[in-house]
Amino acid sequence: MKFDETSQGLGLRGLQIAPAQAFGAVRLVPLLKEHVREDLRLGTLEFKGRRPHAVGVRGHADAPTVAYCSYIPHAYVLRWSSDGTAVAARGAALTDKQLGLRDLGGVRVLHRMVRQEEPGALRFLPLHLSLEGFLSLHFGGPDVAWSEYSRQALSHGLSPRRERAALGSHVHGLEDAVRMFEIHERQVGALVFVADALAAMVVFPHPDDYRALHRSLVRDFFGELVYQYAILYDDVPAHRVAVREAEIADLAGLRAAVARARADWTAFTAGMAAGVLREPLRWQTVHRTGPFRLRRFMSALRPDEDNHLGEAILRDGGELEYCKTFRLSAAQVRRAFLLEKLAQHHWDLARTAEALGVEVPALLVRLRNAGFGYLLKEHVLKNLPPGAV
């Protein structure tokens, strides 16, 4: 996966932060749209037939013969108009023939992550677009036949490459929170915090789309850290913004105090979500149509900080129309960080170790502990000195 550019975070252009609602360790912060437009709508696509789920298979540039496989509960159908006219939101139920699905050992196979179904309609798989990009990161493996790498690594790259995630329904308290929380009139998304750690950011184009897809949060993927936090923490403290009565003498003063309180709350919440709102992200454009771009993104992979990946639809003016993010665990960040460093130094172990400020044996141990021991020849790992860490 190659990134087109690096720029600041998602931001909140066109969105407003509303007061949070908390249940147990889960805190949902509603995102409201300032000006609702009607020229972009998002619905769901249900798979018609006896098997309601599918597995997506797709090669990529580094290894076109290698398949990407994943469980798909549903897909999204994006509908738009190029001239700004209103678009009706509706779901779709397509047959196997229309979807281009075939049966393979009792599993349905879908060949494209993003596909234009008809003029003005695009089908894509939520979160799989970004996760596929993460899994394919330097998937091809060593680009030079260094003697330390195994025959498997030189021939097949990082195969297999697997990462774990938890279904939203397994995150303790999330399903109850989604069921009970109030949906605001202009709400198009939410910031999802678990134990006050940002778990996900979700945005849809239209308030009606959000209402229809609000409960789909429990079918999204969440990282290992989010799953653990939901178990370890029973609740989160209430966040209150004070309004000083002594400073209020009339309605104008009250309005000004409320405006300040809302600004303070917005700044505080944005700070909690700085990992996706403010920190630099690397972007790749996947599809462009009319004034909209479907893009996936990933943090700069800083091992000691929060790191996220996700996908977004942005209007030409920079307004965020759709977004879903996934918080990477520390182990996932370490694996991706090591792969990036190796790729930056053409998979030369000595140069990579020097860039990381460690000796080669220590780098080999880090690769083994990260699950990449299969990339190296057996005798290379066996000859590690006993004190290597």
Score class of each variant (00 low, 15 high):
residue 252 A to S: 06
residue 152 Q to D: 14
residue 38 E to D: 14
residue 248 I to T: 01
residue 360 V to E: 13
residue 144 V to L: 08
residue 116 Q to K: 12
residue 81 S to D: 13
residue 239 H to D: 07
residue 126 P to V: 07
residue 358 V to I: 15
residue 336 A to H: 06
residue 64 P to C: 03
residue 83 D to G: 02
residue 196 D to Q: 02
residue 167 L to N: 02
residue 151 R to G: 14
residue 373 G to A: 00
residue 146 W to N: 07
residue 226 V to E: 03
residue 23 F to Y: 14
residue 3 F to C: 11
residue 322 Y to K: 07
residue 63 A to N: 10
residue 53 H to C: 06
residue 154 L to F: 02
residue 236 V to E: 08
residue 170 H to D: 15
residue 83 D to N: 12
residue 113 M to H: 06
residue 183 I to E: 11
residue 27 R to G: 05
residue 377 K to V: 03
residue 22 A to I: 00
residue 221 F to P: 00
residue 214 H to P: 04
residue 170 H to P: 00
residue 77 V to R: 06
residue 178 V to D: 01
residue 42 L to P: 05
residue 151 R to D: 14
residue 94 L to Y: 11
residue 287 H to R: 12
residue 289 T to V: 15
residue 101 L to C: 08
residue 274 A to M: 05
residue 366 R to L: 06
residue 364 L to M: 11
residue 1 M to A: 11
residue 357 G to K: 04
residue 297 F to G: 04
residue 131 L to I: 03
residue 172 H to R: 05
residue 324 K to W: 01
residue 345 H to V: 03
residue 170 H to F: 06
residue 4 D to K: 09
residue 52 P to L: 03
residue 239 H to E: 12
residue 42 L to T: 02
residue 46 E to T: 13
residue 140 G to Q: 13
residue 388 A to G: 10
residue 270 A to M: 07
residue 351 R to Q: 15
residue 45 L to G: 10
residue 278 R to S: 13
residue 135 L to H: 12
residue 231 I to R: 15
residue 314 L to V: 13
residue 201 M to C: 11
residue 378 E to L: 09
residue 42 L to M: 04
residue 262 R to L: 12
residue 200 A to F: 01
residue 270 A to D: 13
residue 198 L to V: 07
residue 379 H to L: 01
residue 246 A to V: 07
residue 54 A to E: 08
residue 254 L to M: 07
residue 167 L to T: 04
residue 356 L to R: 07
residue 287 H to K: 07
residue 167 L to C: 02
residue 213 L to C: 02
residue 184 H to D: 11
residue 325 T to K: 08
residue 210 Y to C: 00
residue 7 S to L: 00
residue 290 G to L: 08
residue 111 H to Q: 07
residue 365 V to R: 12
residue 316 D to F: 04
residue 339 L to R: 14
residue 13 R to F: 10
residue 154 L to W: 01
residue 61 A to Y: 13
residue 187 Q to V: 09
residue 374 Y to G: 14
residue 237 P to G: 01
residue 200 A to K: 14
residue 350 A to R: 11
residue 253 G to D: 14
residue 360 V to W: 15
residue 60 H to T: 15
residue 20 A to T: 05
residue 192 V to Y: 00
residue 197 A to L: 06
residue 170 H to N: 09
residue 316 D to H: 09
residue 228 Q to N: 09
residue 243 V to L: 04
residue 102 R to Y: 05
residue 283 W to V: 06
residue 167 L to Y: 02
residue 145 A to F: 03
residue 198 L to C: 03
residue 345 H to I: 03
residue 355 A to E: 08
residue 92 A to L: 12
residue 336 A to P: 01
residue 46 E to F: 08
residue 218 V to T: 13
residue 224 E to G: 00
residue 373 G to K: 05
residue 2 K to A: 12
residue 309 L to C: 05
residue 62 D to W: 12
residue 199 A to H: 02
residue 322 Y to P: 09
residue 146 W to H: 15
residue 245 E to T: 14
residue 332 Q to E: 13
residue 184 H to R: 13
residue 65 T to Y: 13
residue 286 V to H: 06
